[in-house]
């Protein structure tokens, strides 16, 4: 029998090893897998390369993982976030590395990583400082830069519901990076508010097919980053 549902967040992240590349879904408050990230903080893996659009908010979730000193390198498009000085302080102190990637290039690198495509060309960043060190080629009279696909060891993402096969549906703009991060990971770990019986999600409505998902954790009432930040919660 195929059953991808794990007993707890702690169990699901137990084998994340030091030095892993970890993608964390979410864009601002939408889709941030807070409970999985907190389980990873408890688990203790360090020297991580983390991929997210930003660098977290307040001192919870990703910002708390960074503050705990577990992240050696961030790959993101916008490391400045409201209500968080955590990344800024470590970056200025030279204690964390940054790879700055335009948001669309980041998304496509993740997608390509999951689709078995080692590299691709995009017009984004041509003639700008972010082109430095990249191969340029001309197609049809227009210049493009080469970007590499970005696979990862582990993805931590959040969805609305899953069945035990790992088929996923999402909640509104919480979808954002989650479907492509699931594709890009050797081990995609998903927290869902609801686990539903196989067959109950209309096949026409499945957003992420279960083949891209390895572990499902049931988190019935997930917390929201903005609420925790407002309450002044620190998970470090």
């Amino acid at each position: 029998m195929m059953n991808k549902v794990w007993s707890s967040a702690a169990e699901a992240v137990k084998d994340v090893s030091d030095g892993s590349t970890v993608m964390i879904g979410g864009f601002g408050d939408a889709g941030s897998p807070i409970e999985l990230v907190h389980a990873l903080i408890d688990q203790g893996a360090k020297d991580l390369t983390v991929v997210n659009n930003n660098t977290g908010s307040g001192e919870v979730g990703l910002a708390a993982l960074i503050k705990a000193g577990r992240v050696a390198k961030m790959i993101c498009s916008f490391p400045r976030t409201a209500h968080s000085e955590v990344f800024t302080e470590l970056y200025r102190a030279g204690q964390i590395e940054l790879e700055l990637v335009p948001q669309g290039t980041l998304a496509e690198r993740i997608r390509a990583g999951g689709a078995g495509i080692p590299a691709f060309y995009t017009a984004t960043s041509v003639g700008t400082p972010l082109e430095e060190g990249k191969e340029r080629r001309t197609f049809g009279g227009r210049d493009y830069v080469m970007e590499y696909g970005l696979p990862c060891d582990v993805s931590l993402i959040k969805a609305k519901a899953a069945d035990r096969y790992g088929n996923l549906i999402y909640n509104k703009t919480a979808r954002n990076f989650a479907p492509i991060m699931a594709m890009a990971a050797k081990t995609a770990i998903v927290q869902v508010a609801e686990v539903v019986p196989v067959g109950s999600i209309d096949p026409e409505h499945v957003v992420t097919p279960g083949i891209f998902v390895q572990r499902v954790v049931h988190i019935k009432a997930p917390q929201h980053e903005s609420e925790l930040v407002k309450q002044g919660v620190s998970y470090v």
Partner: peptide, 27 residues
């Protein structure tokens, strides 16, 4: 809703006929 936001991370609403998609499709 906290999970219905725009690129500026501010809460927004949906117009009739709206659709959601992932980041790679968006770009």
């Amino acid at each position: 809703e906290p999970e219905l936001i725009n690129a500026g991370k501010r809460r927004v609403t949906l117009n009739p006929g709206a659709s959601f998609f992932h980041h790679a499709d968006s770009f």
